[in-house]
Structures are given as structure tokens and as C-alpha cells.
Amino acid sequence: MSHNLELAQKHAWNLARTLMTTVILFRSDNEYGVLPADEIEDAEVEALYEYDPHTGSRSVH
């Protein structure tokens, strides 16, 4: 988890390209984190951005 959104975004994009799967950048309380997209449904977090290694990033809202 990170308190810095810009740093979390860089790590999310890097993780998506490394794993070659879509990941979701989320906020929980005052921290940011990343989960694979298929695992986010069970978590009680606010999804912010989706990072797809094939098409890039997009805002979830």
C-alpha cells in the first residue's frame, strides 16, 4: 500500500505489464493498492484505475 497516488500508478502499470494481466488500482482509507482485476470483486475498496497491458490505462469512473 502507498500514500502516493503517482507512485502507486507507476507500480500498477509495471505490474500489469510484468504479469500480462489487467490490474486495478484502488483506494482503501487513505492508501492506494493494486489487485488483479479478477480479485477486486471480493474486496471492499474503491476502484480508481484499470491497467491493461494490451490497451493501457483508463479511469474506472
Rank of each mutant, 00 (worst) to 15 (best):
K10G: 12
E41H: 13
S59Q: 02
T22N: 08
H3N: 04
E46K: 13
A43Y: 01
S59W: 00
H3G: 04
S57R: 14
A8W: 04
T18F: 14
H11C: 06
S28R: 09
R58G: 05
R27M: 03
G33W: 00
L19S: 08
E46L: 15
L19N: 06
S28A: 09
L25W: 01
N30S: 13
N14H: 08
G33V: 02
G56Q: 07
N4T: 07
P36Q: 15
L5Q: 08
I24C: 04
A37I: 09
T18A: 15
S57Q: 14
A8R: 02
A43D: 01
M20H: 13
V60A: 03
L25A: 04
R58P: 02
F26Q: 00
G33K: 01
P53L: 09
E50T: 10
R27W: 00
V34N: 06
A8N: 04
Y32L: 11
E6N: 10
R27A: 01
Q9Y: 00
L5F: 11
I24L: 07
R17I: 12
A8C: 09
G56H: 07
Y32R: 09
R27G: 00
Y49P: 01
A16G: 03
R27D: 00
E39K: 13
A16I: 02
L5A: 11
H11W: 03
V60S: 01
G33I: 01
T21S: 15
D52M: 11
H61E: 12
V23G: 08
D29H: 03
M20Y: 11
A47H: 04
N4R: 07
F26D: 00
N30V: 12
I40N: 03
P53Y: 09
H61A: 14
V34P: 06
E41C: 10
S2K: 07
H54K: 13
P36H: 14
A12E: 05
Y51L: 13
P36Y: 08
P36S: 14
T22I: 12
M1D: 01
L48R: 08
D42Q: 15
F26I: 01
E31C: 11
F26N: 01
E41T: 14
W13M: 11
R27F: 00
E46F: 12
Y32F: 15
S2V: 05
